[in-house]
Each structure stands twice: as C-alpha cells, then as structure tokens.
Design a protein around this nucleic acid. Structure first.
Length: 479
RNA sequence: CGGGGUGUGGCUCAGUUUGGCUAGAGCACCUGGUUUGGGACCAGGGGGUCGCAGGUUCGAAUCCUGUCACCCCGACCA
C-alpha cells in the first residue's frame, strides 16, 4: 500500500493525534498560513473561498428576514466600552488597545473591537426615537480582535472574521422572537449547507454572553467527541438600552427602553467543517459549500483527444451550474487524486482513452471513495445526483456520529466515568445551581454546553448534588 | 499566565555535545526529455546575512549574555 504510506506521511492520522491531524489538514489543504503575529493567520484562497460561500448563503438568509448590512468603526473609545458593566468585565482581559496616533499618545485609548455591541448601542441611542423607527435589524461583516493566549487556526485566532447582527426592538417579545429566529437561521444553515447537525438550546447563566439576559447556542460535535459552539444568539433584554439610554416614544407618548439582540457566526465554523467531515486523507467538503465541486482529471492527457474531451466535460458541467475545475498539470494522476482528496473537493472525474472509447467516465465520491461509471450522455444529471446524495449522506453520517456519542447519566460516578472515558455529549439533569457546574468543571473539565429546547427527563434529581432537577443539560468537553 | 519545545534555502530537518576548509540532505522550484487508471523517472540548474543584538576567539550555526518570535500542552475565552 504505497499509496497509504504517502498519505500517512503527509498528514498525521486522526487516531494518533487529532490536534496534529487538524493542523496538518488546515495547512496541507492550503486553507491558511501562519502569519508573523501569533494567533493571526493568512487565509489563503481555498480557505477564503469557503468563507465567501458561507457569507453568501448566510447573508441571503439574513436579508430574507429583513436584516440590512452596515459597517461600524473598528475602534471603541475606552469610555464607551465601559458603559455596560458585565460586558466590560467579560471582555477586558482580551482586548487589544491603541494608545498612540502616530507619535502622539492618545487622550483616550481606543480598544480594537472584540465585538461591537457598544458601538451599535452608541449609534442606536441617537437613531431611535419613536416606535415607528423599530425594529432596526442591522448586521455587519467584519473582523474582531481578542487577545487570546492559546490560539489555533480558525478555532481560536486573535483576529477572526465574522458577522455580528444587532437588532433593536420595542418589546421583549419581539426581541425574543428575533433571537430565536436567528438561532434557527444558523441551525438550518449548518444542517442544510454544512451538513453539520446541531443541538439547539440555551446557555446556562455561567456560560452566557457578557451582558446578555439569555444566550442561545447551537452546539456541534466534532469527530473527536469534543463540542464546538457554532453560532450564538443573544437576547439582551433592556440592559444595554438602559446603560446607553436607548429609548423610544411609544404610541402612548411615554418613553420606553428598547430591547436588543445580537447574534454571530465566525470563521470558527470552518474549523467545524474540517473536524466534522475530514478524514485521514484530508478535508471533505459538503458539496453545497465547496468552492470547487468537481475536479476533472484527464488520464494520459497527451494522448490524442483526451484533453479536449476532459475540457468538454468540464464545460458541460459548468453550463449545468456546477463549480468545476480541470487539473491538466503534468503531475501524475496519482498525485492529482491525492491532492483533490486533500483539498476536499467532493467529486472527481477521471477521463482517459479507455473511457472515451467506451463513451464513459469514472466519477469518484470524496467521502466514500466510491467509483461510479457514468455514461457520458448522462453526465450532468448523474453528477448532480451524486453531489446531492453525498450532501445528504454527509449529514446523515454526522448525525449518526452524534447519536453514537451521546450518553446519559443519572448519578455522579456514572457521569464522571462517561465524560472522562467516552468522548461526546452527556445528557444529565441539573438543579440550576452554578456551584454544580463549577464542581463538574473542576472534576472533569467538562462544561454545560446547553439546556436543549428538546428537554427530556432522565431522572428527577441533579446529577451532581442530588437535589431536585430543573433542566436536562448537554455536557461535554469543548473547543 | 504556568509547563515543554523549536528557530539553519519555500518546507522537513542534519550539523551545535567536543568552535576549524566553500554550511549539507530530502522534498518543493526551474530547464530538457521519457512517462501518466493511486503521490513517476533521468539529466542539468537556481536559491541560505544559520531568528536578532552584543560578547569571547586567529576563527562562531556551534561557546557566553541578552532579546524576539513561533509551536504544543494546561488555566481563561467565539
């Protein structure tokens, strides 16, 4: 198996060292390069194209719900950041500061935005006057900076790309409705486009966003059994509105405080795609989000007519609306196969003299490596079918992985045993006391991932302290 | 912020213990040719202030001092 040896050399196997496997894939699939500042990365064309596709789909979904895009400055005056107490406390430890403009020290130092709640609030306070102005549903695509100590490409970088939506509403009900609505946008996007199944739920007070009244989350399970918070949606109630003085005159001509939300998804989700679908040959991209869906690889391309035929197949598929590339470099076919697999391109088409003679080509799925003979006349329909099937299968496979790695625990011994020995989610009851969360974290390093919307009753008492249970919680070790 | 590790062509590293000739290898790259159904082969070629700054020495990648950066593992966080 010379072929396998080469692949093993190229990237560390998942079994051996999952973290190293991840880094290898990220680098070898040419998604990023490390940059000269720790925790910052060059997002290369393959990585950025993925992000562009994510942006494109999400942006369209946002706009369907009435969201408009804006852009806020990247600097926040210190005084502004400090207006909401919980918020500053939450972010202060990881904020980067600008202290000089050119050679002159600044009168007031500026924070490089770690998130833009305060900027939006500062803007909304003067922009909202009447109930007629509401709601306002703005979003921005930008980068934010958080001075992380431990960094990993996509999963935790000091600067990352994201979108942050910020909305203002007249009532608590409207804000709550928007919060949940956006969470659903994220969840649907993850499942439909990224083939990543997610658990929807609410964060405990301990885990919620600094300054939020309620934080909702979608949690995904990676191949190694660790959880990844993949999108969040916060309901701020009127906390920020009170801190920033965002009021409107209602129909009855009384001043009322607004209710706000914010919600975000970041390039971190790319890490999720890698860790949910990838394998020991590299990246596996869901067809609906893949920048290149089909790679045509001519075999014996110098033989009469081969390149022409390959180009013809490429053109036909492009006309059929697929994203197709052809690799006519002078590398050997084996090299091209391995490279296509490393990059996670969902489907490759092999076309050589023998195929041309038979009026066929070979279509190979990236996820299963299944080789399918396709009659050239049926190329477009078959390839589309194969891509759709692959998309469905990937979601289904990921779902089964979550199911197979989700456990239940009633008593604490059992809980600790499972959480330490079986990577995955553990469903267990909780009394609602933060002390139990802290104890669990101390004992196991696991955290509460969320209180899922779909509640079940596993027992009547808290898995940790034994007092009456209030909620069923998903627990897990997280990225 | 603690623990560990590493800085030598684009990449992976050898050389450092015990200072010594023109700083090496593999991969990648360029040229020509033969190849092509799972990471091809032959021949030729280009590319390095040895992280940075001082110091010791006739002589430093190698020894000393300082400094910077990055990676991995933890604690903290999207």
């Amino acid at each position: 198996m010379a072929e396998n040896k080469k692949l093993v050399e190229a990237i560390t196997s998942m079994e051996e060292d999952f973290a190293q496997w991840y880094t290898d894939v990220v680098k070898k699939a040419e998604l990023i390069d490390y940059a000269s500042v720790k925790g910052c990365m060059v997002i290369k064309p393959a990585g950025y194209a993925l992000w562009e596709n994510i942006q494109k789909e999400l942006d369209a979904k946002f706009k369907e719900t009435g969201v408009e895009n804006v852009y806020m400055p990247m600097f926040i005056p210190e005084s502004l950041l400090q207006k909401e107490k919980d918020h500053v406390e939450g972010f202060a430890p990881e904020v980067a500061w600008v202290t000089h403009g050119g050679l002159e020290p600044l009168q007031e130092r500026l924070c490089v935005r770690p998130t833009s709640e305060t900027l939006f609030c500062d803007f909304y306070k003067d922009d909202v006057h009447s109930y007629r102005d509401l709601p306002k549903c703005y979003n921005q695509w930008c980068s934010v900076v958080r001075w992380e100590k431990t960094t990993r490409p996509f999963l935790r970088s000091r600067e990352f790309l994201w979108q942050e939506g910020h909305t203002v509403h007249a009532t608590a009900e409207d804000a709550e409705e928007r919060t949940i609505r956006m969470l659903n946008v994220y969840a649907d996007f993850c499942e439909e486009y990224l083939a990543i199944p997610v658990i929807k739920g609410r964060k405990t007070d301990k885990e919620k966003f600094a300054g939020a009244e309620a934080t909702y989350t979608i949690e995904a399970l990676m191949h190694d059994g660790k959880a990844l918070q993949s999108g969040t949606s916060h309901n701020f109630g009127d906390g920020f509105a009170r801190a920033f003085g965002i009021q409107y005159a209602d129909k009855d001509n009384t001043l009322k405080y607004c209710h706000q939300t914010s919600w975000g998804m970041s390039t971190r989700i790319i890490g999720g795609i890698i860790m949910v679908h990838g394998d020991d040959s590299g990246l596996v991209l869901p067809p609906r989000i893949a920048p290149t869906q089909v790679m045509v690889i001519p075999i014996q391309q110098k033989k009469e007519g081969v390149l022409e035929k390959a180009a013809e197949l490429k053109d036909r598929l492009m006309k059929a609306g697929l994203k197709v590339k052809m690799d006519d470099s002078d590398k050997s076919p084996g090299f091209k196969f391995a490279e296509q697999e490393m990059r996670g391109i969902p489907v490759r088409i092999e076309i050589g003299p023998k195929d041309i003679e038979n009026g066929k080509c070979i279509v190979v799925r990236r996820d299963t490596r299944e080789k399918i003979e396709v009659v050239l006349g049926e190329l477009e329909t078959k390839v589309k079918e194969i891509l759709e099937t692959m998309q469905k299968d990937m979601l289904e496979r990921a779902r089964k992985h979550v199911e197979a790695h989700t456990y239940e625990a009633k008593e604490y011994d059992e809980f600790c045993d499972v959480i330490n020995n079986k990577p995955g989610f553990v469903k267990a009851m909780w009394c609602g006391d933060v002390a139990c969360e802290e104890k669990i974290k101390e004992d196991t390093t696991a955290t509460s991932r969320c209180m899922p919307f779909e509640q079940e009753t596993i027992s009547d008492h808290c898995v940790c302290c034994g007092r009456p249970a209030k909620k069923m919680v998903y627990w897990g070790k997280a990225y």
